[in-house]
Simulated scan of single mutants.
Amino acid sequence: MRFAILIDAGFAKTKLGNRDNPASANDFISLVDKIKAHPFLVDKYLHRVYYYDAPPYSKSHNMPLNGGKHNFSQDPLTIHNKKLLTELSKANHFALRMGEVRFRGWELNRDSLISGVQSCEITADNLRPSLQQKGVDMRIGLDIASLTLKKQVDIIVLVTGDSDFVPPMKFARKEGLQLALVTFNHSVHSDLIEHADLSLDIDLEETEE
């Protein structure tokens, strides 16, 4: 039996890393190794790992309030994520599915608002970019449908906590595929659990840096 692993990077990054120590390519490769070693999959053949993300935003924009121009390509997280995608694109069995990130302007950082006062001074340092990722969820849904209709795999392992994927999950199961879910014990909508055949318990404590 063949299986594919579909990784919702936006979700997985919050489980594999944090702001001070963001997830690396090795973290994702180690995660895949752990999934492959699960008793449900250990005797089955890995078809491919589909990794869904978007290239980091790299343009420059003027900041309001005389804040000068911000070059997003120089942000440490942007540099880190570019390296992450480059390394994963070279990893065995990985296929990157890329959406896009759009700049929606600047918004007030909520931490800047002081409770109990009627007004406060706002500077450029109190603003943060509003970035919106587009097209990633659509690609996951399309790949679930494609893998199902082309009968390329027997099992889909979905790493996500997003209940938006319930419709393609239901479609795959109706067509005879098995759906395994990896949520890292994250609290998810009951529909997501209901429309999976099983949840795989993956221990992140032993994930290598």
Rank of each mutant, 00 (worst) to 15 (best):
F184L: 07
V153K: 08
Q178S: 15
T160G: 00
H186I: 07
D162V: 03
T183G: 07
K174V: 07
D162S: 05
L179A: 09
D162Y: 04
L149N: 08
D164C: 02
G161A: 08
H186W: 11
V157N: 00
R173V: 05
L177D: 02
L149S: 13
S187E: 15
L181N: 04
M169S: 02
T183R: 12
I156D: 02
I155V: 13
K151H: 15
L177Y: 04
G176E: 07
K170T: 07
L149D: 10
F171H: 02
F171N: 00
I193D: 10
L179G: 03
L149Q: 10
D154A: 13
E194Y: 11
K174R: 13
K170Q: 15
I193M: 10
E194W: 09
V159R: 00
I193Y: 09
D164M: 01
L181C: 06
A172F: 04
A180S: 15
V159F: 00
T183F: 06
E194L: 12
L149I: 15
H186Y: 12
R173T: 12
H189C: 08
E175F: 12
T160R: 00
S163T: 10
G176V: 06
K174C: 04
Q152S: 14
V188I: 12
K150S: 15
P167C: 04
D164S: 05
S163A: 15
S187F: 10
D164K: 01
T160E: 00
D191P: 06
T160Y: 00
L181D: 03
M169V: 01
D191E: 13
E175Q: 14
F165V: 03
V182C: 04
L177S: 02
E175M: 14
H186L: 08
L181T: 06
L149T: 15
S163I: 03
V166G: 03
N185F: 09
S187G: 09
S190N: 14
Q178N: 11
L192S: 14
I193H: 12
D191M: 10
K150G: 13
L179K: 12
P168A: 11
I193N: 13
V188H: 09
A172R: 02
P167E: 04
S187K: 15
V159C: 02
A180H: 13
L181Q: 06
S190T: 12
G161W: 03
H186G: 08
G176R: 05
P167F: 03
V159D: 01
V166A: 04
T160P: 00
V157Y: 00
V166E: 02
S187R: 13
L177W: 04
N185H: 15
V182Q: 01
G161Y: 03
Q152H: 14
V182L: 06
V182G: 02
K174Q: 10
K150N: 11
A172S: 12
V166P: 03
S163M: 02
F165S: 02
S187V: 13
L177N: 03
I156K: 01
R173H: 05
K174E: 15
F171G: 01
I155Y: 14
I155C: 14
Q152C: 10
P168F: 09
D164A: 05
E194T: 10
T160W: 00
